[in-house]
Simulated scan of single mutants.
Amino acid sequence: MEYPGLQGDRHRAGSSTWSVMQGEFHWYKHDEQDEFFFVLDGLFRIELNGADTVELGPRQAFTVPAKMLHRPVVPVRSAVLMIEKAGVVATGD
């Protein structure tokens, strides 16, 4: 699966996905649901439109509310668990 700007592996199991990634993703949002991120290893930043950037390290989590424009920025190779409804388009609505 290709994700512009991000390099790494992505694996989906039902409504959860774990990825090993590095790089910058494009700005996107999900209109109908929140998106949950849990960092397993590394450093993961979530830039939020109109709000402060969230920086997460290992064993830290953050939920991006539905309709919030955001983009992941991953400066070092990191392992991240994401939970979202099955069938959601990872690149946003």
Rank of each mutant, 00 (worst) to 15 (best):
E84W: 10
Q60A: 01
P75I: 06
F36T: 03
F36G: 02
G87N: 11
S19Y: 08
D31G: 05
P75T: 02
P75E: 03
V64A: 01
G50A: 05
V64C: 02
K67H: 13
A66L: 12
K85N: 12
S78G: 09
L48W: 03
V88L: 14
F38V: 03
T63E: 09
G23W: 01
Q22D: 03
H70D: 00
A90H: 15
K29W: 12
D31L: 09
R59G: 06
A61N: 04
D31P: 10
V88F: 13
P65E: 07
H70I: 00
L40N: 05
H26G: 09
F44E: 01
H30P: 11
E35Q: 09
V54H: 02
M68V: 15
M82G: 10
G50S: 07
R59C: 12
R59D: 14
L48T: 02
D93Y: 08
L69H: 10
F37M: 05
L43E: 10
Q33Y: 11
G92Y: 05
V54R: 00
F38R: 04
F37W: 07
A61H: 03
V39H: 05
Q60V: 08
Y28H: 11
R77E: 14
W27L: 08
I46W: 00
I46D: 01
F62V: 07
S19V: 14
F44M: 04
E32T: 15
M21E: 13
D31I: 08
F62A: 02
A90Q: 14
V39T: 11
W27M: 08
W18M: 13
K29M: 12
M21P: 07
R77I: 15
V80L: 07
A86Y: 04
F37T: 03
P72K: 00
T53S: 06
D93F: 10
F38I: 05
P72V: 00
A86H: 06
Q60D: 06
A61R: 01
G92F: 06
S19D: 12
P75R: 01
E84D: 12
A51P: 10
Q33F: 12
R45S: 09
F37C: 07
T63I: 12
M82I: 15
G87W: 13
V54W: 02
E47D: 08
A86K: 07
A86P: 10
S78N: 06
V73S: 00
S78V: 09
V88P: 11
R45M: 12
A66S: 14
M68D: 13
M82C: 14
E47Q: 01
V74I: 15
L69K: 07
Q33V: 14
R45P: 10
L81S: 03
E84R: 10
V73P: 01
W18R: 09
V74F: 05
T53G: 04
S78I: 09
E24M: 01
D41E: 15
E55D: 06
E84K: 09
T53A: 05
